[in-house]
């Protein structure tokens, strides 16, 4: 019940800020989703649930070109970055990504599309519920870079007109994937 409610609130808030929210059942569905976004280069940094799903092999097997070396130049030319999320919070439709590893940051800042895999079990109520996890991140790693991401990149700097996609991703796709991971400290 609780999880259903949180998923509903999360999806509504996320859509309200321009995120795409979809439900996927398996790794094939993720591959299909990515393929329908682009025929160009895709960047998949190293993260736990991708490994578990063997996402990279699945993408390769279906012919998707992946960024492999020179991550910086690769990310700058990639059309899609795929990452997980550590957790999310419903009130604002926010996904939280522990982005200390540079490849996570590159994949979530440079490509035009950012695809996020999120286990709905990891949707919390709101920003205050997130604080204990923030503290755990800080305790676990002395140096860190954490990101709250709420919708695509936006600006209203010209005549206060809301415009999407100024420097960061133009689209944020959140794929709800049950059974991916229920550890908020893991991506």
């Amino acid at each position: 019940m609780q999880e259903e409610r949180l998923v509903a609130v999360f999806s509504e808030s996320a859509r309200a800020v321009g995120s795409e929210v979809s439900i996927v059942a398996d790794v094939e569905a993720v591959v299909d989703y990515v393929k329908q976004l682009t025929t160009c280069l895709v960047m998949v940094p190293d993260f736990a649930s991708a490994k578990r799903l063997d996402l990279v092999s699945a993408l390769k097997a279906s012919g998707v070109a992946l960024v492999q070396e020179d991550l910086r130049q690769g990310a700058a030319t990639a059309a899609v970055g795929v990452t997980g999320a550590n957790f999310a919070f419903a009130a604002t439709g926010t996904v939280v990504l522990e982005s200390t590893r540079e490849d996570i940051r590159l994949a979530t800042t440079l490509p035009e599309h950012h695809v996020v895999l999120l286990d709905p079990a990891k949707i919390l109520e709101d920003d205050l519920a997130a604080v204990p996890h923030l503290r755990s991140f800080h305790q676990n790693s002395p140096r860190n870079y954490l990101a709250y991401i709420t919708g695509p990149s936006r600006t209203a700097d010209i005549e206060r007109v809301l415009t999407i996609g100024v420097h960061g991703p133009k689209q944020l796709h959140i794929l709800l994937f049950t059974g991916l991971s229920n550890d908020p400290l893991e991506m």
Partner: peptide, 25 residues
């Protein structure tokens, strides 16, 4: 963080909140 975006632009939250501690990779 809960208050600033709402009072600045009327957004529930900005697109990004970035927490940086220390010299990251």
């Amino acid at each position: 963080i809960r208050t600033l975006p709402k009072n600045a632009t009327g957004q529930l939250l900005t697109s990004y909140v970035t927490w940086i501690r220390g010299a990251v990779p």
